[in-house]
Computed example of a mutant assay.
Amino acid sequence: MMDRLFDLARQAAQLEQAWRSKRLARVGDASLKLMRMDAQAYPDEVHAYAEGLLVLDGEMHLNVAGEAVTVSAGQLYMVSAGVSHAVRPDSHGTLLIIDA
């Protein structure tokens, strides 16, 4: 694998559609994916793998297993495998998703 510098702010601004992630790289078994949030809700989902949600800028509002959680810029929220989670309205900014 080649070393590479990622300008996350520039790449997020170039994403064509909100809520559609772009895989940037793999680190071991994990994928690093960039996503832009646009204040719309994102439906409930469950994964067979753990997922890290790192808010780079803005704020993300989640429902995790029925509990309201707010993740601010610079914070990382880990969702365990098999746990239901959805994004509530008014989430905005840039998100880096880490999943294995």
Score class of each variant (00 low, 15 high):
residue 69 V to F: 01
residue 67 E to S: 09
residue 70 T to Q: 05
residue 52 G to C: 13
residue 65 A to M: 13
residue 73 A to G: 10
residue 23 R to S: 02
residue 44 D to P: 13
residue 57 D to L: 06
residue 62 L to Y: 03
residue 65 A to N: 14
residue 44 D to G: 14
residue 35 M to G: 07
residue 43 P to R: 14
residue 50 A to G: 11
residue 30 A to H: 06
residue 71 V to M: 00
residue 48 A to G: 13
residue 41 A to E: 10
residue 11 Q to L: 14
residue 38 D to M: 11
residue 69 V to L: 02
residue 44 D to S: 15
residue 16 E to A: 15
residue 56 L to S: 05
residue 17 Q to V: 09
residue 49 Y to L: 08
residue 60 M to Y: 03
residue 30 A to R: 08
residue 71 V to K: 00
residue 23 R to Q: 11
residue 29 D to G: 04
residue 37 M to E: 09
residue 64 V to P: 02
residue 64 V to Y: 06
residue 19 W to Y: 13
residue 33 K to N: 13
residue 35 M to W: 06
residue 17 Q to E: 14
residue 59 E to P: 02
residue 52 G to R: 11
residue 73 A to V: 09
residue 47 H to F: 13
residue 11 Q to A: 08
residue 57 D to R: 12
residue 38 D to H: 09
residue 6 F to Y: 14
residue 46 V to M: 10
residue 58 G to N: 04
residue 50 A to I: 04
residue 43 P to N: 11
residue 34 L to G: 03
residue 9 A to R: 08
residue 69 V to D: 01
residue 63 N to M: 13
residue 28 G to Y: 10
residue 68 A to K: 05
residue 26 R to N: 01
residue 73 A to R: 09
residue 42 Y to T: 10
residue 66 G to C: 05
residue 14 Q to H: 14
residue 47 H to V: 08
residue 15 L to T: 06
residue 66 G to Y: 12
residue 70 T to G: 00
residue 48 A to V: 12
residue 21 S to F: 12
residue 36 R to A: 12
residue 69 V to P: 02
residue 21 S to E: 15
residue 29 D to V: 00
residue 26 R to S: 01
residue 15 L to G: 08
residue 13 A to V: 03
residue 50 A to M: 03
residue 52 G to P: 12
residue 6 F to P: 07
residue 11 Q to F: 07
residue 8 L to M: 09
residue 37 M to Q: 11
residue 65 A to P: 07
residue 20 R to H: 14
residue 46 V to F: 08
residue 72 S to V: 01
residue 69 V to W: 01
residue 45 E to F: 07
residue 61 H to W: 02
residue 9 A to N: 06
residue 48 A to P: 11
residue 11 Q to D: 13
residue 9 A to K: 07
residue 7 D to I: 07
residue 29 D to Y: 00
residue 35 M to C: 12
residue 72 S to G: 04
residue 66 G to L: 08
residue 59 E to N: 00
residue 26 R to C: 00
residue 66 G to D: 10
residue 68 A to Y: 03
residue 72 S to D: 01
residue 69 V to A: 03
residue 33 K to D: 09
residue 27 V to A: 08
residue 63 N to L: 14
residue 18 A to S: 14
residue 14 Q to K: 13
residue 41 A to Q: 10
residue 24 L to K: 07
residue 16 E to L: 14
residue 35 M to T: 10
residue 71 V to Q: 00
residue 40 Q to Y: 08
residue 36 R to S: 13
residue 8 L to K: 02
residue 38 D to V: 09
residue 41 A to N: 03
residue 49 Y to G: 01
